[in-house]
C-alpha cells in the first residue's frame, strides 16, 4: 500500500496511514529470555513435586526407620535420614505441596482484596483513604512475620489460617500499591471523559481504571508471591505454620537444626536448598515478567 497520495481526493479527505505494527505478544518476548526459561523450569519441577510428590518419593515421608536415625546420605537414602528416622529426600519432595498451595492462595486472596480496596481508596480518596492509610501505617510498623504469628497464636495454626492471615496482611500492602497506580491514572483525562459520559463509579473503577493498572497488579502479585513463600516458610520454621509431622521444608528445618552442632547437616541443608531454589526460580520469572511489562 505505497500508492501515491490521491491528490485529487474528495473535499477534506486526508489519506490516513496504516496503524503502526502491533507489538509482539508479551509471552513471546518472555520465551526468548533464558533467565525466564531456567526459572520456569525449576518452578515446574517443584509444582510437579507438589502434585505427584507421594508417587515420586522413594519412601513414605512419614515412615520412621528408627534403626537408621541420623544416618548420612547413602544409596538407600540419597539425602540421608533425619533425627527420628524419616527419609529426607522423600520429605523434601513431598514438602513442596503445602507451601505451593498456601503461598499462592494467600497471595491471590491478598491481591483480590487489595485491588478492590486500592481502587476504592484511589478513586474516592477522602476519609476512607486517610483512615485505611493510618491503619496500614500502623501495621507496617511491625514486621509481617510478627503480625502473622500474633494472629496465628490467637487462632491456632492450620493451612487455612495461614492463607487467611497472610492474605489479610498482604491486603493493605497491595492496596497501597494499587492506590498509587490509581492516583497516577487519576490525572489522566480519560477519567474526566468517562465521567462526562455519565459513567458510574463502578464502571470507571473496573472497566476504565483496572485494565490500565493491571500490569502493576501482575507485577505486584509475582513480587508478593515471593514474599508469601518467604513468610510462610519462616512461619513454619518458627512453629506457626505447617505442623509436624506433615512434610514441610520450614518445619523440617525447625525440627532438625538443633542437631547441626552435632554435624548432621543433611537433615536441614536439602530443605534449605529447596526453599532457596524455589525462591530464586520465582525471582527469575518475576524479573523477566517485569522487564517485559516495562519495555
Amino acid at each position: 500500500m505505497t500508492a501515491a497520495p490521491d491528490v485529487s481526493a474528495a473535499p477534506g479527505q486526508v489519506p490516513v496511514a496504516h496503524g503502526l505494527a502491533a507489538p509482539p505478544a508479551p509471552w513471546r518476548l518472555l520465551l526468548r529470555k533464558p533467565t525466564f526459561l531456567i526459572g520456569a523450569l525449576i518452578l515446574l519441577f517443584w509444582i510437579a513435586c507438589a502434585i505427584f510428590g507421594r508417587a515420586i518419593a522413594p519412601h513414605d515421608p512419614l515412615a520412621q526407620d528408627l534403626l537408621a536415625t541420623n544416618s548420612p546420605p547413602s544409596g538407600a537414602h540419597p539425602f540421608g535420614v533425619d533425627s527420628i528416622g524419616r527419609d529426607v529426600l522423600s520429605r523434601v519432595i513431598v514438602g513442596a505441596r503445602d507451601i505451593l498451595l498456601i503461598a499462592p492462595l494467600a497471595t491471590l486472596l491478598g491481591t483480590v482484596l487489595g485491588t478492590v480496596l486500592g481502587l476504592a481508596m484511589g478513586y474516592f480518596g477522602g476519609i476512607v483513604d486517610t483512615l485505611v492509610g493510618r491503619v496500614v501505617e500502623a501495621v507496617l510498623a511491625l514486621p509481617v512475620v510478627i503480625v502473622a504469628f500474633l494472629f496465628i497464636v490467637a487462632v491456632g495454626p492450620s493451612p487455612l489460617t495461614l492463607i487467611v492471615v497472610v492474605g489479610f496482611i498482604f491486603t493493605p500492602l497491595i492496596a497501597r500499591t494499587v492506590r498509587t497506580a490509581v492516583l497516577v491514572e487519576g490525572q489522566q483525562d480519560y477519567l474526566a471523559s468517562a465521567r462526562l459520559l455519565g459513567e458510574r463509579p463502578g464502571y470507571i473503577m473496573f472497566a476504565e481504571i483496572l485494565p490500565n493498572v493491571f500490569p502493576v497488579i501482575v507485577v505486584e502479585f509475582t513480587v508478593r508471591l515471593g514474599y508469601a513463600i518467604f513468610a510462610v516458610a519462616t512461619l513454619s520454621f518458627l512453629g506457626f505454620g505447617v505442623q509436624q509431622p506433615t512434610p514441610d521444608w520450614g518445619g523440617d528445618i525447625a525440627a532438625n537444626y538443633v542437631l547441626l552442632g552435632a554435624g548432621y547437616w543433611w537433615e536441614t541443608l536439602f530443605a534449605a536448598l529447596a526453599i532457596a531454589s524455589l525462591v530464586m526460580a520465582l525471582n527469575l520469572v518475576t524479573d523477566a515478567i517485569e522487564q517485559v511489562i516495562s519495555s
Partner: peptide
C-alpha cells in the same frame, strides 16, 4: 494520549 483509555 491522556484523553483516550489506552486499553480500549
Amino acid at each position: 494520549d491522556s484523553a483516550l483509555n489506552r486499553r480500549h
